[in-house]
Design a binder for these strands. Structure first.
Length: 309
DNA sequence: CTCCAGGGATGAT
DNA sequence: ATCATCCATGGA
């Protein structure tokens, strides 16, 4: 625990975080609201505002010292450990990845990247906003939703907003949601918010379902198809085998694992992904996604390094 | 300017 | 079950 105040005026605590990369984790397209502030990040964990900064094998974390804060929520360190899944055995997970050229490159490139545990509604709502949107734009939508419907908090002289509960979004109008730049996704978010607010769908209760049943329950919601369902399963329901296939991953699969093969159906890609990448396929997927997005840039046709299956 | 983005719903084969 | 088309928006 250190009292020296840099930019941040709140008291910072130390949290051991071996085998963890905060920046890679927050910028890998799984969560969209954390904002870089000097050498750290400001955001919310549930309804708690937090500042986090990596110092080697540890995190320095700070949260506003409200009088009754310690009575209301678990200690910040515990919150951070759970949110960032610091209990995941990353070595074991990475060891379960297939041993091929691209996977080995991605595994090295993404060292320390963790699949975090996001609040279920926050994750579902955010990914309903994601279809046909770039990561940068999803971040913008998330920010506008929070600014308009969330609760304003402050940490380190930085304003942050909680993600509005389904009940709050359900009170809004489609017009208000469109003003948050959701476009045609506004109708879907509103409809799903109403289902969650009314109790017609219980996002906590369905956590007990099998993977297949959970996926079906999520796909029954407006604006949720196989891809969004898999993201929500992976990022909010701890289903580490869920393998979302977006345009980046599909490109990787077709160019690196099915090079020079025509008539590769989406079903074939899905079956291959489910079997080839193992029990923690979702983790492997996230590593491939982040690596492709950071290094790809170019739609390079069959570059060297094809794997073939 | 054009192209594309962590796709899904709908209706026609 | 698979396939075509439409859907808003803004960054590159």
């Amino acid at each position: 625990m250190s009292n020296d105040e840099g930019i941040c005026s709140v008291k910072l605590i130390q949290i051991a975080a071996p085998d963890f990369d905060l920046e890679k984790t927050l910028n890998s397209g799984q969560v969209f609201h954390w904002e870089k502030i000097d050498s750290g990040f400001c955001g919310t964990i549930g309804n708690v505002a937090a500042y986090l900064e990596q110092r080697g094998d540890a995190l320095e974390g700070g949260a506003p010292a409200t009088p009754d804060w310690q009575e209301l929520v678990p200690p910040l360190a515990e919150l951070v450990r759970h949110y960032f899944a610091l209990d995941h055995s990353l070595a074991q997970i990475c060891a379960s990845f297939p041993d091929d050229k691209l996977m080995n490159t991605a595994r090295e490139f993404c060292r320390g990247l963790r699949i975090i545990r996001q609040p279920k509604w926050e994750c579902l709502a955010t990914f309903i906003c994601s279809p046909m949107k770039q990561v940068a734009h999803i971040r913008q939508i998330s920010r506008k939703l929070r600014e308009r419907f969330g609760e304003a908090l402050e940490v380190c002289d930085q304003g942050v907003y909680t993600f509005p509960p389904a009940e709050r979004v359900a009170q809004g109008s489609e017009k208000q949601l469109r003003e948050c730049r959701l476009g045609y996704r506004a109708k879907n978010l509103l409809a799903t918010a109403r289902l969650a607010a009314s109790g017609d769908i219980d996002l906590e209760k369905i956590a007990t379902l099998s993977d297949a049943d959970l996926r079906a329950a999520l796909c029954a919601l407006p604006g949720v198809g196989p891809k969004v369902a898999n993201c929500v399963m992976l990022f909010a329901y701890e289903r580490l085998g869920a393998f979302p296939i977006d345009v980046w991953i599909e490109r990787v699969l077709r160019e690196k694992y099915f090079a020079r093969k025509r008539k590769v159906t989406t079903k074939r890609l899905r079956d291959f992904s489910a079997n080839y990448f193992g029990a923690h396929g979702g983790y492997a997927q996230q590593y491939l996604f982040h690596h492709a997005r950071m290094t790809g840039r170019r739609r390079g046709k069959g570059q060297a390094g094809e794997i073939c299956a």
